[in-house]
Design a protein around this nucleic acid. Structure first.
Lengths: 211, 211, 211, 211
DNA sequence: CATGAATGAGAGTTCATTCAT
DNA sequence: GATGAATGAACTCTCATTCAT
């Protein structure tokens, strides 16, 4: 699990080689510790231990404990959005873009069970101020969704009278609720398999009303 | 606001008269304190003070602090479901039932700003175990939603192939996300006014796919 | 040493009787702990233990650790000044008043070795802000000295051109330096025995210059 | 202010030239940092930064943090005593010697505001053991004062029955208290101007008792 | 039933010092 | 000699819960 540090002998010299910079090392450790022990049982010293550094070292890279969490979300959400946007760019219809988004969203969560627990459950235990900071990060993702909706409205795929904000809340709310339910059920079933059906509901919802 | 305790003079005697049993008194106090100070600033002593009782008295009515929160949710959610089900019963179509549910849901949150903050934001800061217990309470509501969906499938209003669970997640997720966004925006706009549009998205989503 | 709490059996009941209020109990414990371990080795938990209370109890009576120290000084210095002023009041000449002050000052320090260490050495290790607060308390004593000087100037005992402030600094500085030297020498000699000679130096210093 | 390090260009090379040995550089930095930030805010890293060296470098010149302080006092007090003794040597009477000492003492403190703060206030916050070591350094100065008193006793200027130790405590205590009061009043008035009057009080105090 | 003083376990953060480079 | 990233021990204060009255 601690894939970030090796001790090996070369001739008569002991080398300690760290493949990841400590910053990432600590964030990855935080994901594991928070996922396994819960937000409130994740003492700084525990994260430090998991990261294989001293307690004090944490404070060379993060202002305080809360800063670890915001950074964690920033870092991971950043990758998240990046990957999703890259995939979406290649799709031509709003429906396809949305399908890609849902599929990728579920796929990325499925790929990292620890991260799934942290983002769907543990990070929401933070206080109001921290949650506002996390929401700032989230905004990038919400804008991506709104861009798809707008695109769909303009090319005639979606109802032209759609309230973009409400539609975005439906889309994100549905995806998020589905993911949270999956995590609370201990990820027992295949989340990715639900993508198509969830997508159908969403596209249907955004589509033109039948007369 | 503190409608549960009166101090008044009668002759030369000071009487303290409590109209509600202490149990409800404490729960109402908890809603106010948590809404105004946030989950983590809501010490038992603060709730006791707001309720006008001694710290120790809390423990005559609740097992521990967590029990106040679960009871709070139980109590309030109970009323919530009761009121909504009463209204729904009178409606004949699934679409109408769903509209009533969304309208009532938004209306009840709008009517009690403190409760809205507590259920949408503060209670989610609780730990995993507490959240599981809160989810137990929530299940009654989720079942109500599923009953409507099933009804719609059976009477031909909704797509007969609808995955009830996924549809429920879309419906609850959309309503919840809309409510949370409204609370995080400090309840600045009229939530109830959104009910119709949200309902349209949901019904559309559950409806028969256009060929 | 812990003369403040008794446990005794009466019939079949265990009574815990506290003769001093906890506030004083804690202050007295602080004097002992600080004197014996030094200011920086006097953790709150150590003071609590010495006082026979729980750590948390300290915070029912004091805002924080610093508050213990200021309160300690306030309390003890208050008694100090009170006792000295009571004795001085009965004296008719400035020289007598000053002798009483020096004698009493040395006597009170000699009577409480722990307090002597705390006031002469340990309390001076506090930071600038705390020292300013302590100085506020000290001002009462300094004013008492200035009142004696003024009295002596007016009744012709002292040089009428005396700068009251400088004379006060000489008097307090001499007394304080003598006491500090005595404490730093581990109180090995009789401080009170020096009172007469110190007094002679001071009165001589304040007296009319010989032509 | 940072007169100890120059950065200048010579040809195309950047040279860092240090005119003082690092030892003095660090001590001077410590005086500035302690005076400006207070004893407890003067972390080793801060002193290193002010001195323009790495944290680790400090430990090439000083055993530990405490050693910086003792060395600081040693160094500065050494100069102090040297200068004062040089001036005193030229004076013929005890009174004149004492006047020179007081004048010079006040003058030297006035000339270096940072040093004044450090010696009168900040260094006293050190713990008992450090203060004992500082006192060792101070002894040289106290002996100088005692020598003057002895001289005065022997040549008939002072009371032949004078207790040298007590007289020294009065003299040092008065000077020190006057200086400390001046520093605590933020050096707002002219300390040197007080030398004559303080001296008069001291000489008067040591002088022969009037009939 | 009701009180509220007392409890005491628990954790984030700082900073003097080290040592591999 | 010089560096500065890393270390890890140490300590104040909070607050849910108890229990004698």
């Amino acid at each position: 699990m601690n894939d970030y540090s090796f001790i090996f002998l070369k001739g008569s010299k002991v080398l300690k080689k760290t493949t990841k910079p400590k910053y990432k090392q600590i964030i990855d450790a935080a994901v594991v510790v928070i996922a396994e022990n819960g937000y409130h049982q994740s003492q700084v010293s525990r994260i430090a231990k998991q990261a294989g550094v001293a307690d004090g070292t944490i404070y060379l890279y993060f202002k305080n404990k809360e800063d670890i969490l915001v950074s964690l979300f920033h870092e991971k959400m950043g990758e998240f959005i990046e990957k999703i946007e890259a995939e979406i760019a290649g799709k031509t219809s709003a429906a396809e873009k949305l399908l890609t988004l849902v599929e990728k969203h579920f796929e990325l969560l499925s790929a990292d069970h620890h991260l799934a627990i942290v983002t769907q459950l543990e990070l929401r235990q933070s206080n109001k101020e921290l949650r506002h900071r996390i929401n700032e990060v989230l905004k990038g993702y919400l804008r991506t969704i709104e861009t798809i909706i707008q695109f769909g409205k303009e090319n005639g795929e979606f109802n032209p009278n759609l309230d973009v904000r409400l539609a975005r809340q439906m889309i994100f709310g549905s995806i998020d609720e589905t993911a949270t339910t999956w995590v609370m059920n201990e990820q027992k079933y295949d989340l990715s398999a639900l993508a198509k059906d969830v997508h159908a509901l969403l596209v249907n919802g955004c589509g033109k009303t039948r007369q």
